[in-house]
Design a protein around this nucleic acid. Sequence first.
DNA 1: AAATCGGGGGA
DNA 2: TCCCCAGATTT
Length: 346
Amino acid sequence: MKFSKKIIDWYSVNKRSLPWRETKNPYYIWLSEIILQQTQVKQGLPYYEAFVANYPTIFQLAEANESEVLKLWQGLGYYSRARNLHASAKYVTNILNGVFPDNYKDLLNLKGVGDYTASAIASICFNEATAVVDGNVYRVLSRYFGIETPINSSKGTKEFKLLAQELIDKKKPAEFNQAIMEFGAIQCKPQNPDCHVCPFTKGCIAFNKNKIADFPVKLKSAKAKKKYFNFVVFISNDNKTILEKREGKGIWQNLYQFPLIETNKEINYEAFKNLVENHKLIQKQPFELSLYNEEVIIHKLSHQHLYTKFWIVSLESKITGAIPIEEITDYAVPIVIGNFLESFNF
DNA sequence: AAATCGGGGGA
DNA sequence: TCCCCAGATTT
């Protein structure tokens, strides 16, 4: 039996029931695909429900403010996805007159839509036979065909896309693409795949060489760098605080944070007190300094480990430009700050 | 080609 | 600890 038929048969029996499988509306499929980039279904599901509820159509998403979209995205990470989602909604609404792109090539013009997402939308919504290659597909194909080319090399990218494109059922591209991803997600898993009930073991090179755990091959990535973040939580005598918008390049772009003082190593109470005395919002007026977390919080991102301290600075005066404490929850903040807000008693 | 961009969860 | 997740974009 052909690979494509076998995987589609498996899918018809084993597929999970998921909300985005009940529609072919390109807006909903696009939304789900962006949310699910580098994100497990379990983590992305509540966000999908929230976005559909808040923005039932792409026009409503286009009319929203970016700050509102980021607030809804808060906690999901990779925030450029949210910014690009919003920008593309405006693009489709205002430039394309509300007509969603209906083919692979045009879909690539949407910000945040690359080869994978364009292939997914084109196949699922418009029956275009273009193969998806996500983390699941890399794993399934590398194991079954015993391919040792690193999946995160440019050679690997081309090789796996070409192979997937040869395998795809050109009459059922939507089913094939979703089938191979679902198979990778719930059966041909990274750890402890369910080979004992797998219909592909007879032809699976990795299985027959007893080398399942050796696939896929991947180049090592650089180790995370350590950074030392000191958030300054001002509290004025009228119960207000300072939040700043993160501008520029790095992480958490356009999200809000307490004023940040980054140091090149962990800093103790006395040293930080000297530092903060010169802060523009202090100006030598009396203040009380306390450290919220005696144990440094290590917030781990893919490429950075943030050694984080929250310093509470209480003032006996008002602060210009400050916001009332109770309004903080209106702002999109990184989850490390969101966690602080939930546990700190202002 | 390599680095960057989050956060959660599993072993 | 390290690795992975319905990847895309920038450097």
